[in-house]
Design a binder for these strands. Structure first.
Length: 534
RNA sequence: GUCCCCGUCGUUCAGUGGACAGGACAAUAGAUUGCGGAUCUAUAAACAGAGGUUCGAAUCCUCUCGGGGACACCA
């Protein structure tokens, strides 16, 4: 990784200067390497001179000049160092970039596989919508976000499992039963309730609810998930926790460790002492165990299965929920930090400029199926992924339909189709996948700015994965894909690939083949198709 | 009442301590007897407001205004 290399170079330079006595002794702060906003300023830059200037009684520019001369003494991947306003800007040598091409061509789909995950087991739990109705846009948002995050983490070297927690027991299932029967306790509304009423006879709300939820899970939710292009490794049933006595076991364990107490006839968990804002009930006064009790059992179950990292995507309406899970993790003898949450803000529906409240309980909502049917899976995915999960999302179906023709995803896919077209033409194959890659190539032939720019994007792919695996901000993926596609289109406009000059053609063809690999990798991570033709 | 999230070009989103605030759509002006014009090149356009911290703030802190959410022995 280029950033690490630069960090080492800078660190060594400072140490050398200290040895020579040109800099006084101080402990070196964390060196931050970033891309300058303005590309003309270099490939990478650092603000280190600002940070150390306090320690050495020199202004940042002086400090930067010292570093520059020290760094330029050493031979390295750096072609040029410039100081602008105290920032140290690095220009990476063209050769370094050219050398990435054979690496990419060799690694193919494995390009971008990192080891930062160290094979640690990660459990990503997402959607987990109650089996009481179809999946809505909000579920779709969390679904795509979780799925792509899981992809990225796997790419970064984690052992990732996707999990859907089915709340197939409890009050909401009873309410579903009442709704299907259609009595005065009914809560859920919508076409599907009427359909279920035709199928399920009987007046026992518990049994009706149970049957209805099973049908909803199998006939609505699972097909929707499949349609979304998501494959869960586990569909985890809440009910199974009761069947296997795991709820009892976790309550027993918490009690043994002294984290529970009785009050007002109920059994409480001392979550307040562990960072939550209040204590939580495990067993109600009437003897019924709460959802929280089974959540604790579920948490324990995940840990027992060997997951060190738990990531849970939650809707904004479940905000605050993680504090009690962290408290639970601690009480059970695990680290609080092993539980991570991503809050996915709700999706608001707008029609004719007015907000319409979406709710399964009112029967007003747009399902994720409807959206996919209207705009297609690729557009739907891109559409949700470009928005950070933490921001509010205003949705207008008509506008979404209209905009789908103009979605940037097509630009990205078009780049892929163009690439395939070039490859097919130059090899005379019908499919771009059969292209044989020549290895003895003179990459020196590549010297146009647009060519080198394109290779720079390949290097950034590695950074995108690393950063995203660290901060979970998946909106970086679609953004990057657009930049990569732009770099290609730009190259395409200014450089003819198939020409009389054989050496140049070969080099450019390999550049195109490398672009194909990186672009395919990017699209795969987003779960978006890479069409050879459009 | 307490807590959380959000407020960025006309629109919709990026940017969470760095250098002139990016992209997409819309707008305007250009580019094809060349590997797919679903493309490229260029122009115009925004940090809700006020203080503070810092060499440096869209980003951190405080207050104000506006929008949403959470505060169950429901899940």
């Amino acid at each position: 990784m280029i950033k690490e290399e630069l960090e080492t170079i800078i660190e060594n330079a400072i140490k050398n200067l200290q040895k020579k006595g040109e800099l006084s002794a101080f402990s070196i702060p964390k060196i931050l390497i970033e891309h300058p906003r303005e590309k003309l300023r270099g490939d990478y830059s650092t603000n280190i001179s600002f940070l150390i200037s306090k320690n050495i009684a020199k202004n940042p520019v002086e400090a930067a000049m010292l570093l520059k001369s020290e760094i330029e003494n050493e031979k390295s991947i750096i072609q040029k160092v410039e100081i602008i306003g105290g920032f140290v800007n690095f220009f990476i040598s063209d050769d370094y970039f050219r050398k990435q091409l054979p690496v990419i061509l060799k690694k193919k789909n494995n390009f971008g596989n990192l080891k930062i995950g160290k094979n640690e087991k990660v459990n990503v739990e997402f959607i987990s919508a109650n089996p009481t109705g179809p999946l809505t846009l909000g579920n779709g948002r969390g679904g795509f976000c979780g799925d792509v995050l899981a992809n990225v983490l796997a790419k970064a070297g984690y052992k990732v499992k996707r999990e859907y927690y089915i709340n197939d027991i409890g009050n909401q299932i009873n309410k579903l039963g009442h709704s299907v029967i259609g009595n005065e306790h009914a809560l859920y509304k919508g076409e599907y309730i009427i359909e279920l009423r035709k199928k399920i006879k009987g007046n026992n709300f518990e049994k009706v609810g149970e049957r209805a939820s099973k049908i909803i899970l199998d006939k609505m939710i699972k097909p929707s998930v499949k349609k979304m292009g998501i494959k869960f490794d586990f569909w985890f049933s809440e009910k199974s926790l009761y069947k296997n006595k795991e709820v009892d076991k976790v309550i027993e364990e918490l009690s043994k460790k002294g984290f529970t107490y009785k009050s007002e006839g109920a059994l409480w968990f001392k979550s307040r002492d562990l960072g939550d804002d209040k204590d939580r009930v495990l067993i109600r006064e009437d003897g019924i165990k709460t959802y929280f009790a089974s959540d604790m059992a579920y948490l324990r179950n995940k840990f027992k299965r060997g997951f060190n990292h738990l990531i849970i995507l939650l809707g904004a309406d479940h905000y605050g929920y993680v504090a009690r899970l962290k408290a639970g993790a601690y009480a059970l003898g695990y680290k609080k930090e092993s539980v991570n949450d991503i809050v996915v803000q709700l999706v608001k529906l707008f029609e004719k400029g007015k907000e319409v409240r979406m709710s399964k309980r009112t029967g007003i909502y747009i399902t994720i199926d409807e959206l996919i049917n209207e705009v297609g899976l690729d557009v739907a995915r891109f559409f949700f992924l470009t928005r950070g999960s933490n921001t509010h999302f205003n949705f207008n179906l008509d506008l979404a339909k209209e905009k789908s023709d103009k979605n940037p995803v097509f630009k990205v896919q078009y780049a892929y189709a163009r690439i395939c077209s070039i490859i097919k033409k130059s090899f005379g194959h019908k499919s771009a996948g059969k292209a044989k890659i020549k290895s003895k190539i003179n990459y020196e032939a590549l010297s146009e700015p647009s060519e080198l720019n394109l290779i720079r994007q390949f290097v950034i792919f590695l950074e995108v994965i690393e950063d995203t695996a660290r901060d979970y901000q998946v909106q970086r993926m679609p953004q990057y894909s657009t930049e990569l596609a732009d770099a290609f289109h730009s190259f395409y406009e200014s450089c003819q690939v198939i020409t009389e000059d054989k050496e140049l053609s070969q080099a450019r063809l390999n550049l195109v083949l490398a672009t194909k690999i990186v672009l395919k990798n990017t699209l795969n991570l987003m779960g978006i198709s890479a069409p050879e033709k459009m």
